[in-house]
Write a protein that binds this DNA or RNA. Structure first.
Length: 309
RNA sequence: GCGCAGGUGGCAGAGCGGUCAAUUGCACCAGACUGUAAAUCUGGCGCCCCACGGGCUACGAAGGUUCGAAUCCUUCCCUGCGCA
């Protein structure tokens, strides 16, 4: 079976993914599929760094602002929507360009990870969350010793989800090897943008200043006014977390700003930890390099088609 | 100049005779990641080594007391506050 080819662009926050994606899209008749767990929400534009209409330069973008921030968006939903968008793009004979910083979303799509089919159960989670980490770990050890063996026993989020699966299916959590495979349904080119630490820190700082000028605080205020709880905003992290803490009077504006800068840097490092794992990634440090890689990639496809004919 | 408070690892800040290379937080480095993933969590963090163990240098400086000091005493240097 002939696989469809897609381009994937990853990189830490503020590394210039969006611009590169537009550049590549314009040059190779592509459309962009965002892979960002915060940009999927409506109304979260400035804080999540959503690309503007103008910056799109006419390139079609998918999966931006497709969900209400009041709802809970998840990887599974992302995978479904992204696959649909990709199929749609391919049907129009265009090149799908997956671009974003949420490694979990990207890899679930790229490597076709199948999550256990157990939907989030809010009341069960609430109930479990009232218990301590130790209690949860003991519970899991009793119900699913295998999973308990490898789980991070301090991580309540993981423990709750594992228990959620075990309790609702009545069976152990599926082994990780079963879903965490590295073959792809696509023929893909995965490009990673590499930026020097010092440069990235500077970019993060400048970008935050820009966001504040564009009305970041007003955006967060508005989201809260529209009914998003402080708690929910806090859980979105970074800009949304610390601006809302400022609006609540918990921290000064100056502290909020410096914390956001710092946390964005930490976030960038966490992203890199994830991205580094995938040895299929080709790291580049200039848009030119990316263009030439894509050019070769697209051509390789043509050659293969010709050979087959 | 006098009085009081204080000088501890990159920073903040515990310790106040032994179990202290020194609690903790931050920063820094590395890592994990099974439907919240911008979330959540873990490890490391004086120097050196044949590293579950050992050696060296360390708590403003210099002396001293003691079997033993970051912890007590003396002097000196510096900082903050109060009085001049």
């Amino acid at each position: 079976m002939k696989r469809n080819k897609i381009v994937v662009i990853v990189g830490p926050t503020s590394s210039g993914k969006s611009d590169l994606a537009v550049l590549v899209a314009k040059r190779f008749r592509g459309e962009v599929v965002s892979a960002d767990s915060r940009q999927v929400y409506k109304g979260m534009d400035i804080g999540s760094g959503k690309i503007t209409r103008k910056e799109m330069k006419g390139v079609r973008h998918h999966l931006l602002g497709v969900a209400s921030p009041k709802s809970t968006f998840t990887v599974v939903k992302y995978k479904k929507l992204a696959e649909k968008a990709i199929a749609d793009i391919l049907k129009r004979k265009r090149l799908p360009i997956i671009c974003g910083g949420t490694g979990f979303y990207i890899d679930s799509l790229l490597y076709d990870w199948h999550m256990p089919k157990v939907a989030a159960n809010k009341s069960l989670r609430d109930r479990l969350n009232r218990k301590s980490g130790i209690e949860l770990f003991k519970m899991l050890s009793g119900l699913d010793p295998e999973r308990a063996k490898n789980i991070d026993r301090h991580n309540k989020v993981r423990l709750v989800r594992a228990l959620e699966i075990v309790i609702t299916t009545g069976a152990p959590v599926p082994k990780t090897e079963l879903f965490n495979k590295k073959e792809s349904l696509y023929e893909f080119l995965k490009i990673g943008i590499k930026v020097q630490d010092k440069v990235l820190k500077e970019k993060i700082k400048i970008r935050l200043g820009k966001r504040l000028k564009e009305g970041l605080i007003k955006e967060v205020e508005k989201l809260h006014r529209q009914g998003l709880s402080w708690n929910k905003l806090d859980n979105f992290g970074l800009e949304y977390r610390y601006i809302s803490r400022y609006l609540r009077g918990l921290v000064t504006k100056e502290d909020a700003i410096s914390t956001i800068e710092k946390e964005n840097w930490h976030y960038a490092k966490r992203q890199m930890t994830w991205f580094r794992r995938d040895k299929n990634t080709i790291w580049i440090n200039s848009p030119e390099k990316a263009k030439s890689l894509v050019k070769l990639f697209v051509r390789r496809h043509d050659v293969e088609s010709n050979t087959l004919n």
